[in-house]
């Protein structure tokens, strides 16, 4: 039975780095697997969606529907995406027979330090709009396995822990 591994967190939390590590290990054991990244998905779609709450939710719905379609076809999916909306998490749980949810929970202070483009700093000052976690609300996933303050040193270890979860 195919599964969906949904790795989520705010921008800069390291979700994609960790997801790639899990995927590269998993692929050897389960060749029928794909890796789907939220940013890649946007560029594949090449459409008009922006970054306000409405468009972010629309994008999240598309990703969630595609993931459940793939798992229903017997393809395992490792998906790293922000998509921090309760209705999306509920949908995933309902439409994927095996669903694993991982939340990379990093303190905002740490995210600001990590964010080299100054995304969060600009948003806090009001110089940038539509930044999730600052001027856009988000829902922490309720049933997720939580990894707190995932840093570079812990990425390998955390990826291994997640791999053990889905193995």
């Amino acid at each position: 039975m195919a599964f969906l591994l949904w790795i989520t967190g705010l921008a800069g939390s390291g979700k994609t780095t960790i997801a790639k590590k899990v995927y590269s290990k998993m692929k050897k054991k389960h060749p029928a697997s794909v890796f789907l990244d939220g940013d890649d998905f946007r560029s594949i779609m090449q459409d008009e969606l922006g970054f306000d709450l409405k468009d972010r939710k629309k994008n999240a719905w598309r990703i969630a529907r595609l993931c459940s379609f793939l798992t229903s076809q017997g393809v395992n999916v490792v998906c790293s995406t922000m998509s921090l909306y309760r209705e999306i998490h509920t949908y995933n749980r309902k439409h994927n027979k095996k669903y694993y949810e991982v939340f990379i929970d990093v303190d905002m202070q740490e995210l600001i330090k990590r964010n080299k483009k100054g995304l969060y700093s600009l948003a806090i000052k009001g110089e940038m709009k539509n930044v999730t976690g600052i001027d856009l609300p988000f829902d922490k996933p309720q049933g997720a396995v939580v990894f707190k303050n995932n840093n570079l040193k812990e990425v390998k270890l955390n990826a291994e822990k997640i791999y053990q979860l889905i193995k």
Binding site: A123, I124, K125, G126, E127, I134, D135, P137, K140
Partner: peptide, 18 residues
């Protein structure tokens, strides 16, 4: 998140400090 779970209003920036 515990405090604001039923409040859809937590989304303002801190530009007032600037």
């Amino acid at each position: 998140e515990d405090v604001f779970q039923n409040e859809n209003k937590r989304s303002s920036t801190l530009s007032y400090l600037s």
